[in-house]
Nucleic acid binder design. Structure first.
Lengths: 162, 162
DNA sequence: TGATTTTATCTTGACGTCAAGATAAAAGAT
DNA sequence: ATCTTTTATCTTGACGTCAAGATAAAATCA
């Protein structure tokens, strides 16, 4: 009897005409997402980052040397509005974690590159990050994780079809 | 090969020392959460609501007649900061969907009650809401849903233990 | 080439959220 | 009965986000 059960039970009581079986799943996905975010934010915070900044630094890092992408490329990798990316880049620039460079091929654009400090930082943070993620799943067996991953992929396809 | 695979593959390339198997799960939970939110927001928007307003109205509705709770009770039901709840109530009050009443037992507090309009609205929205949720899961079989729900519960316990 | 459309990024204004602190009443202690 | 602590809510200021529009360069077209 977790919190999601409590909510669906209340609905069953008040609106017995409604089928809340889908809510039992979607509600748990939401709770789980929040629990993961909470755990991961602690790691980010220890390095003066938040999820938004980590996201940009990590995208640059995993793009490979020279760790350099245009705002537009960052935009399509991270699913945020364009103004949001402008803002994120500005803050990372102010922190000295990325450098804005001229894009020789297109003067409407720029190239955003990890600074040496940014590269050193993200390389360190990502190690703790994957350790945090592992800890959040630690109580699940390999079998459970494997089945869970398969069903998450199925659920993603289902949601995108809808 | 979905977007999460793309990300974990990039990490495997750039940082082969890291174990990104947990990321493959947590990343999919995040994607799924966003996909569900997106789908559900459409329903809310059709009624002039957003997830925040729906949350409060739904909490009042499922609490049962007389659909009346204190800000503090709403607070503990919805996991937001107290100032956030103040703000949500103020907006719903401005929309005429809830009424603020004196709490006879405690003059530090109030009682927030669904207005007749608020009650009629939430009763209508929640019907579409559960239909939307059902649609988001429509492509999954009953067996898949059942296993998925079990694993989500397991994952929630695991994350809370961490 | 010159005009038009498209593309890439930034700016603006509004919104929702949070943390920290303020306010006021209730509960508890002496 | 008064003082202190706790509880309940609101206020303030900062942050991150978004949608819509502005700006400027590149690409396309005539």
């Amino acid at each position: 009897m977790d919190h999601v059960d409590f909510i669906t039970d209340q609905w069953a009581q008040e609106r017995p005409d409604l089928d809340v079986s889908a809510m039992a799943i979607i509600g748990r996905v939401a709770r789980l997402y929040l629990a993961y975010q909470e755990g991961m934010q602690v790691t980010f915070g220890r390095f003066g980052l938040n999820a938004a900044k980590f996201d940009v630094l990590a995208t640059l890092r995993r793009s490979g040397a020279p760790y350099r992408l245009s705002p537009g490329a960052l935009l399509s990798a991270t699913m945020v509005a364009s103004g949001t990316m402008t803002n994120r880049i500005a803050r990372l620039e102010a922190d000295g974690l990325v450098l804005r460079q001229i894009n020789p091929g297109d003067s409407r654009s720029f190239l955003i590159e990890l600074s040496p400090e940014g590269l050193a930082l993200i390389d360190q943070v990502v190690e703790e990050h994957v350790a945090t993620q592992e800890r959040l799943l630690a109580a699940m067996s390999q079998d459970e994780r494997s089945t869970f991953k398969t069903l998450l992929s199925r659920a993603l396809v289902a949601a995108e079809q809808a």
